[in-house]
Design a binder for these strands. Sequence first.
DNA 1: GCCGTTTTCGGCCCGACTGTTTTCAGTCG
Length: 612
Amino acid sequence: MSTNQRLAEQLSEIAKLLEVTGANSFRANANSRAARAIEDMTEDIATYADDREALLEIDGIGAKIADKIIEFIKTGKIEEREQLLREVPAGVLEVLRTPGVGPKTARALWQGKGVESIADLKRIIDDGSILEVPRMGKKTVENIKKALEFAEASGGRTPLGVAAPLAVEFAERMQKVKGVERVGVAGSLRRGRDTIGDIDILVATKDGETAGEAFRSMPEVMQVLAAGATKSSVRVSLEGPIKAETRGKSDEETKAPPAVATMQVDLRVVAPESFGAALLYFTGSKEHNIRLRERALKRELTLNEYGLFPLDDEKSPPQSRGVKPVAAATEEEIYEKLELPWIPPELREDRGEMDLTPEDPPALITLEDIRAELHAHTTASDGAMSIEELARAAKELGFHTIAVTDHSKSQTIANGLSKDRLLKHIDAIREADETVKGIRILAGSEVDILADGKLDYDDATLEKLDIVVASPHWALKQDPKAATERLLRAVRHPLVHILGHATGRLVGRREGLAPDIGAIAEAAAECGTALEINAHWMRLDLRDIHVRTALEAGATIAINCDVHGMGDFDNLRYGVTTGRRGWLTADRCVNSWSAKKLHGWLKSKRESASTA
DNA sequence: GCCGTTTTCGGCCCGACTGTTTTCAGTCG
């Protein structure tokens, strides 16, 4: 875990501990906000050790928290947290993580019944003494029991690529329900986060009863959690464990993935005339919504899921008094009244999108901008398609270029190519390039970056290739400093065009390397090396915040599907979404360039290499 | 504990649902 993550976790723990002790909730909140700010940073927080002023510049960090950060960097601890942990047992935090158990309940369980761990909680559920806790009835206990079982069965959040197809399925079925006028998928799924907590489906209808019933009786539904007039929540089963394609993967990927057995799906029913306000509200993020509401208040307006209303002195909600909204039907008109451009969902994370102006709306990359795939495997290593099949598939998608980049020799499990096999493979690629018209097939390699940063082929061999994608596959538990050195060496190598899946992380399963992305981005910008977003939903590596850092440093981005089989091209959308979350525009993505510009860049790197 | 296009002090987003109550506290997003 990186220093930033460790620090963010400690601050977030402080926030939770404060909530349990019943401290001022704004104080707790301030610690959460600071934790989030640090989590979003890609530069190593340790570099701020001697720069308190710079820390104070960061939004959400004031004098007190700045001191705590410096204390953490210097000592690895925060005394306030130690103090709180002397007061509140650490196990109470575990209990607090149970859905349905908030700070008040956790405190009551702890102080009333001595619950200091999940085991304690289970014990008093079993012996029935939990019912002695105030406001604790049979139903609440039953819900906690189920939540505990669920937590044990699943790893928590679900990968985007697993949740998205399910959401689409639900949305399509809801569209067919009688009376339903519009359907939208909201929540973190719409924002394109790499993992999804629960799926939010929004429907516009005047007949909420019918919609709710149809929703709750979907075949996948295992349990109904809530069934109100405007909101239903269900737990659904996912079809078995994630079907991870093993395809001869060389490392932990072949080990059984954790089964994400179920996930929660929420249905929200809204009136058609407030669909935009509801969609905006349920898309979030929470932080973005808070900013929007603060912005509304400054303009004598108030925003809720029914619309944007004029502010008055009445206490009851405006929609309940028949007040006419200033805007409600579409997101666009609400943003407009708040003097903002329509903000794409991927940017709604309170990461600076509020500074956008209507005159200068963001022009993010789209799926249609992608014209080339620069990372694909064939049957020569661990892919499922021949060179020609791959090329025809890419051509079908309208691409002008496909790069064949099979694994290098150290990837023995993935049938990596020896130098001799690679040379023959290059000939086969050249031949296919002659045969298949209408698309350019590049001869390339996904060459391993060895633990010390050396590449898996010698330079003379790499020189024969049109394109080199260098990726780390082994030694992914290296310390951050070694990882940075290793990747820097690859990025600066004159024969490398693209740094593939830089950290080697697997969403929810493997943390991967934690290199200094800022330093890598700067080197990449300087050397003209592109940094890859690996579009497979299990990887999405670079992450969104890494992309942002790379762009700020002046680097270019590649979005590649890392194709092993036909279906992998479908993952492109997740790569593009991740790019958009990092504020990527088409002109900064090499896969969006014209054939001429792309091939020119690939060649120019080689020319500068030979003159260097 | 942070922050300032009404504020260096006094604010800090808003509503639905559940379950336990008998008018509302707690949790969630």
